[in-house]
Design a protein around this nucleic acid. Structure first.
Length: 474
RNA sequence: GGCGCCGUAGCCAAGUGGUAAGGCAGAGCUCUGCAAAAGCUCCAUUCUCCGGUUCGAAUCCGGACGGCGCCUCCA
């Protein structure tokens, strides 16, 4: 078996072979930092996280680049609309860069909580204006772009391949009545590479075409090529970015370099509620930091991983709660195993183990995390039985498997530092358990039950078994 | 109008030609002073519907119905 990835460009699963043996360059379109992150961001960046984690598990040297868009795009590619960062800045009476910095920090906080590893390089659009201008100059020199009164547009008619990612033909676009004609573009489907800054536009830079700011799509082309080369292995993002954003990126990049821009395009599907897309503009979206008040962030990650990244995820309380219940069952098994194993040096991962094999087979199939999680439930059952049967030899082997599959690849095990903070002293708990045991021995069940009930209310669960009483935090 | 996706048990959800994964909820049993946890067992003769291809279809083809996405900022 080998890793197969569904390539949006070819609309089929392809065996993954990196351009340079042993190394992978990947780019996932990052957020525009003018508001807080919502569940849609979680799904997209969990996908990027899983892809990079699994590639590393397979032994690849991965460079993961994810931009921070701190130049507000116009709300459309015509000459209308407003810069989103400018709007937020004006409302809050702040400089646009304050807005960008504020939400960038909060973005990372929100993603950290989901156990999403930070990208290796997180370039900001405002830090790469020079690169963007250079790319635009090249496109002008090669005749793929034209300037009108301080605005520079990409000439879609010059690009024979335009539409190859999204399956759109330019003639069809022209037939659509939805493309605004009100601008100085030659053709409605041409898109802006550089915009002239009007009076009052705060974010602006000097350029060969006068003061202005970059268009929506150019930053990703410029930054991905700067850090990953002219052809990169994997480029991805949310499905709604397929058109026009990624289509335009391909047009710009390939016209400038004459080389393929991306080998594998990956797109994640949406998060829905009641079957309808959750989105900012629809007003049915939920901010992650609000959800964190109600749910453990890792159980939200688990909920998302229980569906495939290319399918939709139905995000309703009933689904989240049932996922959370299943997730806690897995964690319970892992916690008991960790306690049973104690502090010993763990063996290396045995990749020939049946459970590991099945897990790899699932992940090799276009990152099928739902199937991979089903394997973890078998791992949990095996773990629970091994603990009950006191198979001491087997336990460290199982713990290694948990840490590799559930921990390193899926990222659903709590990090040691972030596990439930305990203000409960183990020594005091042992004392309480000892007294309760004495009460039980003299059959004072009223007392022993009262102790259990009150501890439960304090967040500590007691569990009696043949081996004695154990405790855990709720 | 153009392009595309989806419809699997009460809920979430994998499966894309070989006879329905997994989780939650539910039922029973084991263990147990009780509870919890855990284990075992049960829980879709069937995949929206109707035709077709095939030895064989949830999976392929055609049609109907229902839902959704993109085409405008969006993960």
């Amino acid at each position: 078996m080998a890793l197969e990835i569904y390539n949006t460009l070819t609309r089929k699963k392809e065996v993954f072979t990196p351009i340079h043996e042993g190394r992978v360059g990947m780019y996932i379109c990052g957020p525009t930092v003018y508001s807080d992150s919502h569940v849609g961001h979680a799904k997209a960046y969990i996908m990027g996280d899983i892809v990079s984690r699994y590639l590393r598990f397979l032994g690849y040297e991965v460079t993961y680049v994810q931009n921070i868009t701190d130049v507000g795009h116009l709300t459309d590619d015509a000459d209308e609309g407003e810069d989103k960062l400018d709007v937020a800045a004006r409302k809050q009476k702040k400089h646009p860069m304050e807005i960008a910095e504020f939400y960038t920090r909060r973005y990372y906080e929100d993603m950290d909580a989901l156990n999403i590893r930070r990208p290796d390089i997180a370039p900001r659009a405002t830090g790469h204006i020079i690169e963007q201008i250079e790319l635009i100059k090249e496109l002008l020199e090669k005749g793929f772009a034209y300037e009108v009164d301080g605005n520079v547009y990409f000439d879609v008619s010059k690009d024979k391949d335009y539409g190859k990612l999204s399956g759109r033909k330019t003639e069809e676009q022209e037939a659509s009545g939805r493309v605004e004609a009100r601008s100085d573009k030659r053709s409605p489907q041409d898109f802006a590479l550089w915009k002239r800054a009007e009076k009052g536009h705060v974010l602006r830079w000097p350029s060969p075409w006068g003061d202005g700011y970059p268009g929506w799509h150019i930053e990703c082309s410029a930054m991905s090529m700067k850090y990953l080369g002219q052809t990169i292995d994997i480029h991805g993002g949310g499905l709604e970015n397929q058109f026009p954003h990624h289509e335009c990126e391909i047009a710009q990049s390939e016209s400038a370099t004459g080389k393929p821009f991306v080998k594998y395009w990956i797109h994640n599907n949406m998060v829905t509620t009641g079957g309808v897309k959750m989105g900012k503009s629809l007003g049915n979206s939920a901010y992650l930091r609000d959800l964190y008040q109600q749910y453990n962030p890792l159980s939200l990650r688990f909920t998302i991983l229980q569906s495939h990244y290319r399918g939709t995820t139905e995000f309703v309380p009933e689904a989240i709660k049932s996922a959370e219940a299943g997730y806690e069952k897995l964690l319970g098994s892992y916690d008991r195993l960790k306690q049973a194993v104690g502090d010993v040096v763990l063996p290396p991962l045995d990749r020939s183990n049946t459970i590991v094999q099945r897990f790899i087979e699932a992940m090799d199939d276009d990152f099928n995390t739902a199937k991979a999680i089903a394997v973890l439930y078998d791992l949990a059952t095996e773990t629970n039985n091994a603990i009950a049967a006191k198979e001491k030899e087997k336990l460290p082997i199982l713990l290694t498997i948990w840490q590799n599959l559930a921990g390193d690849v899926l990222g659903i095990l709590p990090l040691a530092s972030s596990s439930k903070s305990s203000d409960v002293s183990p020594a005091l708990m042992n004392l309480i358990i000892k007294w309760r045991k004495e009460a039980r021995e003299r059959r004072d069940f009223a007392m022993s039950d009262a102790i259990r009930k009150e501890l439960d209310e304090a967040g500590v669960v007691l569990e009696d078994s043949k081996e004695g009483t154990s405790w855990r935090l709720k």
